[in-house]
């Protein structure tokens, strides 16, 4: 347990600069997008006041008072791009978190495999670290929202703005609404599914690392097998819910169970490969 936590710490430590860089880029994008948009809106207000007419220089419609919600809906791209970037980087890191230990002049995997701790801790530490990266970026985004609201208050004079609810703000953004679910259940689905997908990939990577060229094939077959297992009820019964001889709740439990099976098998197989079959 102790060494597991140390391994998690080490994985985070190794990724810290990339994580900080991603947070930095996200902050720069979102803040500059927000400020730029608000400035434009203010300029449009000014012109409307001077010319007295309904100019549409920058925005088709600017409400009488600016809200955070409006700002958010007009800065979609500024918010979504860094989020997509983070997703891309983290997706690549799912692979790199393993392969980096085999790469280069100094192959760290030797040392990791020789640690006096059960090798499944390596597996668990890497998945934990990845989850923590994701959650810390999401948390960072959550923390940034009130700060961004503060920025709005600083840029826009009080008489020109009105309050908006944070939930509406999140809802209006296509990326945030997916990343920050408002119900625990949804949170559980999104991040649970993501975790299971990463576990499957980890095991596929370890198959490749254990059996080299044949391992690539095994890895792909494993992933296909996992998808097949999860999709089995639908393949068996078809997608038409009216003819499925099960209650929706039963299907739900069945699929959930299959997901747990896939997760469990992935962890078990991955640990076993690390313990018995892995080669440096």
């Amino acid at each position: 347990m102790n060494r597991y936590l140390k391994l998690v710490h080490m994985e985070i430590h190794r990724f810290r600069w990339i994580l900080i860089a991603m947070m930095g880029i996200t902050a720069i994008f979102q803040f500059s997008g927000l400020i730029w948009t608000l400035k434009k809106a203010m300029a449009q207000f000014e012109e409307q006041k001077i010319q007295g007419s309904d100019t549409r220089k920058y925005f088709d419609s600017v409400p009488d008072t600016l809200t955070f919600e409006w700002a958010m809906s007009n800065t979609q791209m500024w918010f979504i791009l860094p989020v997509l970037l983070c997703i891309a980087v983290l997706s690549l890191y799912v692979f790199f978190i393993w392969y980096r230990d085999w790469m280069g002049r100094h192959t760290f995997i030797y040392r990791l495999l020789m640690l006096p701790t059960a090798r499944h801790n390596l597996f668990l530490a890497k998945i934990t670290a990845l989850l923590l990266f994701v959650l810390s970026i999401v948390a960072f985004q959550l923390v940034m929202l009130p700060v961004q609201e503060l920025v709005l208050k600083l840029v826009v004079p009080a008489e020109l703005r009105s309050e908006s609810h944070i939930v509406d703000v999140i809802n209006i953004n296509q990326a945030l609404v997916e990343l920050i679910p408002r119900q625990f259940e949804q949170f559980f689905y999104i991040y649970g599914l993501g975790t299971i997908a990463v576990l499957m990939l980890f095991t596929a990577i370890l198959l490749e690392r254990s059996y080299q060229r044949m391992g690539i094939l095994y890895g792909i077959l494993y992933l296909a097998g996992c998808v097949l297992v999860v999709a089995a009820p639908f393949l068996y019964f078809g997608l038409d819910s009216s003819i499925i001889p099960l209650y929706p709740m039963e299907i739900y439990v069945l699929v959930l169970l299959l997901f747990f099976v896939v997760a469990g098998v992935s962890v078990w197989l991955g640990s076993r490969l690390l313990a018995k079959k892995i080669t440096v």
């Binding site: 190794r14 280069g104 002049r105 100094h106 192959t107 760290f108 995997i109 030797y110 040392r111 020789m114 640690l115 006096p116 701790t117 059960a118 090798r119």
Partner: peptide, 20 residues
């Protein structure tokens, strides 16, 4: 078994710590 790594150490033909 993992505990034995306390008792047996290995010096490979290259250094096995991250370059950074």
């Amino acid at each position: 078994m993992p505990e034995l790594y306390e008792k047996i150490s290995f010096v490979p033909d290259h250094l096995t710590m991250p370059a950074g």
